[in-house]
């Protein structure tokens, strides 16, 4: 039984077809990488899954529910979390506050409870803080301790990427969508994150869908790889199968030019 099922997704912007009749399935506990050249529709796919765009045709099913057309905040509540291609933190909130925002969809305190600081609200706040710290601690000591109270804009680039993932983890998702998580990281950081992605699946029981350009990451992380080009799926399988698939190579590198006589 699939956790995520995309059927026949089609999405166009003006004349540009970003997704064309795309089918995709992800089983629970899998780590699936989505690869493809720029403009292949990978981020659009994420945006459609998370409800930022509504597909022109096709459906998205998650955990037995048809989530096509739902609003992003509803989808997050159902258990899908994501990070963005360019880091979108809340720059002037502290590290801890950023992570605590992730817990929003799992908590209830409303206007009156917050004003009155009812006991259950205070307990909930403590829980939120603890869970946020837990998510931050996943990345080691870097985002903990005194770092918690620093504004997010002050972090180094790699730490900001990590914080974004931590914030997504704080939403207690079942499915995590990572959009180029290692972009801009140096080899050491990349290796560490690759390891952590596996850890997320093993320790937290997450299912993960990753968009990546760095093939070392793809190789190190994936159970399965899906290759897109011009909005269509052109290959699917293990890393070795896809990496050597002629169509995939052609999509990235182009066709061999005609040899002169």
């Amino acid at each position: 039984m699939a956790l995520l099922e995309c059927r026949g997704l089609t999405k166009s912007f003006g004349g540009l077809a970003a997704l064309q009749d795309l089918d995709l399935e992800v089983s629970p506990g899998e780590i699936v990488s989505v690869i493809g050249p720029n403009g292949a529709g990978k981020t659009t796919l994420f945006n459609v899954i998370t409800g930022i765009y509504e597909p022109d045709q096709g459906e998205v099913w998650f955990n037995g529910h048809n989530i096509t057309g739902l609003k992003p905040n509803q989808i997050t509540k159902l258990g899908i979390a994501r990070t963005f291609q360019t880091v979108h933190l809340f720059p002037n909130m502290t590290v801890l506050e950023n992570a605590m925002v992730g817990q929003h969809c799992r908590t209830r305190a409303g206007l009156f409870a917050s004003i009155l600081r009812l006991p259950w609200q205070r307990a909930e706040e403590e829980r939120v803080r603890a869970k946020a710290r837990q998510a931050l601690a996943f990345f080691g000591p870097r985002l903990t301790g005194y770092r918690e109270d620093q504004p997010a804009s002050m972090l180094s680039y790699a730490n900001r990427r990590r914080l974004e993932i931590a914030r997504a983890l704080a939403t207690e998702p079942k499915l995590l969508l990572l959009d180029e998580p290692t972009a801009g990281m140096n080899p050491v950081e990349t290796q560490e994150l690759t390891r952590l992605i596996g850890k997320m699946r093993d320790e937290l029981g997450l299912t993960i869908l990753v968009i990546e350009h760095d093939m070392r990451v793809v190789k190190g992380v994936s159970d399965r790889v899906v290759a897109l080009d011009h909005g269509r799926k052109i290959a699917e399988g293990s890393y070795e199968e896809v990496a050597h698939d002629e169509r995939v190579i052609e999509a990235y590198l182009g066709r061999r030019a005609v040899e002169s006589a």
Binding site: N73, H88, F90, P91, M93, E97, V101, H104, S114
Partner: peptide
Amino acid sequence: RLANSRVGRAWNAMREDEQVAEAMG
């Protein structure tokens, strides 16, 4: 009280980046 609560956090997030706030639930 509101500023330091879940409600206040939600407002802050919404003010700083509406789309991402939606994505956070």
